[in-house]
Simulated assay, not measured.
Amino acid sequence: MSKLLPDVERFLADKKLAPTRFGEDALGDRHFVRQLREGRRVWPETEAKVRAFMTSYRPTERQEAA
Rank of each mutant, 00 (worst) to 15 (best):
49 K>C: 10
60 T>R: 06
6 P>Q: 06
9 E>Y: 08
52 A>G: 00
41 R>T: 14
34 R>M: 13
18 A>R: 15
29 D>E: 10
63 Q>M: 11
2 S>C: 07
55 T>G: 02
62 R>H: 11
49 K>P: 02
46 T>I: 12
61 E>H: 03
30 R>N: 07
2 S>D: 13
36 L>H: 00
5 L>M: 06
65 A>D: 05
22 F>Y: 03
32 F>Q: 04
35 Q>S: 14
65 A>V: 12
4 L>S: 07
22 F>L: 07
57 Y>L: 07
47 E>T: 11
7 D>E: 13
48 A>Y: 01
43 W>E: 12
26 A>Q: 02
54 M>P: 02
7 D>N: 10
43 W>N: 08
15 K>H: 15
17 L>E: 09
55 T>C: 04
52 A>S: 09
62 R>L: 13
24 E>H: 09
39 G>L: 12
15 K>R: 15
20 T>N: 13
58 R>H: 03
64 E>F: 10
27 L>F: 02
12 L>Q: 00
60 T>A: 05
28 G>I: 07
15 K>C: 10
15 K>Y: 13
56 S>G: 03
16 K>V: 14
1 M>P: 06
17 L>F: 02
55 T>L: 12
12 L>E: 04
31 H>T: 07
43 W>Y: 09
23 G>I: 13
22 F>Q: 03
38 E>S: 11
39 G>M: 10
39 G>I: 12
6 P>C: 08
44 P>Y: 05
20 T>M: 13
19 P>C: 10
59 P>Q: 09
52 A>W: 02
62 R>N: 05
30 R>H: 10
13 A>I: 13
24 E>S: 10
30 R>G: 04
37 R>L: 12
62 R>Y: 13
58 R>K: 08
9 E>L: 15
10 R>M: 14
30 R>D: 12
49 K>S: 10
40 R>A: 05
28 G>W: 06
23 G>E: 13
58 R>M: 06
26 A>E: 11
37 R>V: 15
37 R>Q: 15
20 T>G: 03
49 K>N: 07
24 E>F: 11
49 K>M: 14
54 M>G: 03
33 V>C: 02
61 E>Q: 12
54 M>N: 01
66 A>C: 05
17 L>V: 08
51 R>T: 04
61 E>K: 07
4 L>N: 05
58 R>S: 04
23 G>Q: 06
24 E>V: 13
25 D>I: 02
8 V>C: 01
42 V>I: 12
4 L>D: 09
46 T>C: 11
55 T>M: 08
64 E>N: 06
33 V>D: 01
57 Y>S: 04
52 A>F: 01
33 V>G: 04
17 L>Q: 04
17 L>G: 00
23 G>R: 08
66 A>Q: 15
44 P>K: 09
8 V>L: 05
31 H>Q: 08
49 K>R: 14
59 P>E: 10
20 T>Q: 13
47 E>N: 01
29 D>F: 01
27 L>M: 02
6 P>F: 14
65 A>K: 12
10 R>E: 15
20 T>L: 05
